[in-house]
Amino acid sequence: MPSLIRLLAKRLGTSLIVLIGVSLLIFAIARVIPGDPARIALGPNATAEAIAALRDRLHLDQSFLTQYGYFLADLVRGDLGTSLYTNRPVTSDIAQFLPATLELVIIAGLMMVAFGLPLGILSARHRGTFIDHAIRMVTLLGVSAPGFVWAVILMLVFAYFLPLFPIAGRISDSFTIPPVSGFLLIDTLLAGNIRAFGNAAWHIVLPAFALALSGIGQAARLVRSNMVETYDKPYIEMAQSYGFAEKRIARRYAFRPSLIPSLTIIGLDFAAMLGNAFLVEAVFAWPGLSRYGVAVILRKDLNAIVGTVLIMSALFLIVNIVVDLLVSIINPRIRLSQRAS
């Protein structure tokens, strides 16, 4: 499919421009917020000489553009600088914390699709009936509160009052899993430790579900409303006039065309989870990049802030590209117009 490759190339090109813009912006914002990073890093008892030395090492006394130039030069070498908070290269911090966040967000995203789409389809197929009303009520509840509120509620109910799930963390301390990918669900399997895998899966259920709830509600409601609208299209009546089975009509004539507008929004919701994960991670003491991000912002750890935001933006863009590709696969209009242009 050369048209898809062209689409991909185009999107990658624009994404690069967006990333440069984001880096400039966050680079500037990080420097505008009040406070001297060198002073914060070295503490209140540091001597003026020590602070001046650190400022010099960080090029903080140079012009903004020079600083950005140093940053870019390092970036192309894959170096995001050193974190003043952890005293380690920002890249190794990210490599350590990112997999936990990705794992959480991916599981939440899967939950969103696995629960949201079927609920929406069910609701649309039985529109106007009790099933529809019940689903709409429940999903409204899902979208009506942000993820961190659900996180607290779920934790209280299912980990504290009913101790069905662990309160916090990624895995019980009794397991030692050699990190390979950083994804515990994968590493435990690689280690051949099924019990550890079960334990990690058991830990991720509540935080992922809390993160996914509003997405599930959003996806279900979106799929329902788009599908109900599609049910009024002439091709539905045409399909009925030919006596196609209701299930087939629901799947191929109502759901599939209605998925095109739904998918874009679901993709955005998925990407938004990267941000929402900040608070959910905080509630569940989930050792992910989001928690790291909050910590470094509070300490005005310039390199770490820029690195974290840059990685998050890149992930956001990647998700969007994937969604665009999926949309163009199910929407022949886009696929074919790519070929024509």
Partner: peptide, 11 residues
């Protein structure tokens, strides 16, 4: 049907 183009599934 009346409108042939919209009576066919677009996908």
């Amino acid at each position: 049907f009346q409108d042939p183009t919209s009576s066919l599934n677009p996908t």
